[in-house]
């Protein structure tokens, strides 16, 4: 699936996330005091209220928590069907990333499938998409 995607407005809170894929790494914000991952990113840890939070490279793998197959063309240029999924990210307890599953037929996707990140660049944004492992 390609085509023109809506892109996020980059700013101090989210730039690391949306541009981190430039070197192929998935980054999430983590508290340096208690290791809690913070997503969506905010400048404070919800667990210990530390403000020492910083982007951390994570493995970039995970498990499909849920998904849907979108079949409706919401605008004429949209290519359908595609899988819109939620991924529970390995090594980052509690963090879910919404994304697309690429590289496999839409009916080959199942909850519990293992996936890994692949980045798709559009303008200055590196979108973390996921593909099935194995």
């Amino acid at each position: 699936m390609s085509g023109s995607r809506l892109l996020p407005q980059l700013g101090p809170d989210n730039r690391f996330f949306w541009t981190g894929g430039a070197d192929g790494q998935l980054r999430l914000l983590q508290c340096e005091a208690c290791d809690t991952f913070i997503h969506p990113p905010r400048p404070i840890c919800p667990t210990c209220l530390s403000e020492a939070v910083a982007p951390r490279v994570v493995a970039g793998t995970g498990v499909i928590d849920s998904y849907t197959i979108n079949r409706q063309k919401w605008h004429p240029a949209m290519e359908v069907p595609f899988v819109f999924a939620r991924i529970a990210i390995d090594g980052a307890p509690g963090v879910i990333l919404s994304t697309n599953i690429v590289g496999s037929p839409v009916d080959a996707v199942e909850i519990g499938d293992r996936v890994r990140v692949v980045f798709e660049q559009q303008d200055d944004v590196f979108l973390p998409l996921f593909e099935k492992v194995g």
Partner: peptide, 12 residues
Amino acid sequence: FPQWVMPFNALS
């Protein structure tokens, strides 16, 4: 919030 879903064409 929309930035976390809409770039993945989940517009609805």
